[in-house]
Amino acid sequence: MKKVALTLISLACLAFGAITLNAAHHEKHDAITPGTVIHVVTVSWKADATDEGIQAALDGVVTLAKEYDGIERVWIKTIKAQGNRSHAFVMEFKNPQALKDYAGSAAQKKWYEVYYPVREGSTTFDITN
């Protein structure tokens, strides 16, 4: 009887360990490959854009994130730029629907009032898992 009980306890421990490892694997995988959407924008500015105007547009990305609930995080400080773009910024949307709803939203239109007067051109990449 003791052998049976020990065997059952051993099997239960193995099963618990396997479940725990599986959960840890999925948790790590979800952290590495989240379901958010990264909206990467590379920008070139108009020739007559001032440093203040450019900074206002970038600061506007931060304000936009505060006003639009679908944005979780933003990055506005370009460390390195290649090609014909001098700056980039990134918005992390909660999910693909949040990005879709952002297009044409009141928050986006308000930010465009600061962004478009200094923006010459941009390229956008939307990335998710």
Rank of each mutant, 00 (worst) to 15 (best):
T42K: 04
I54A: 13
D51F: 09
G104S: 10
R73F: 13
H87K: 09
A106P: 01
F89A: 04
A88F: 02
W111T: 05
A98C: 08
W45G: 00
G70Q: 10
Q108W: 00
Q55K: 15
K46H: 06
W75N: 11
Y115W: 05
F93S: 03
D48H: 12
G121I: 09
H39L: 06
R73G: 00
W45H: 02
K80F: 04
D51A: 15
I71N: 01
P96M: 06
K77T: 14
T42S: 06
A81I: 03
D101S: 08
G83H: 01
L99T: 03
E52Y: 00
F89M: 11
F93C: 06
V90N: 01
Y112S: 04
V61E: 01
W45S: 01
L99N: 11
V61A: 02
L58H: 04
K46D: 02
K77G: 08
E72D: 15
I38H: 10
W75T: 13
T78E: 08
Y102D: 07
Q82D: 12
Q82C: 07
S105C: 03
G60L: 03
V41E: 02
A65M: 13
I54G: 10
A65H: 06
L64Q: 08
Y112T: 01
N95F: 15
K46S: 06
G70P: 09
T36N: 07
S86P: 09
A88V: 01
K66H: 10
Y102F: 15
R73M: 07
D48E: 15
Q97N: 11
G121E: 13
L64R: 06
G83Q: 01
I76V: 14
D59M: 08
V74E: 03
V40W: 05
E72A: 13
V90L: 07
E120K: 09
D101P: 03
G121N: 14
N84S: 13
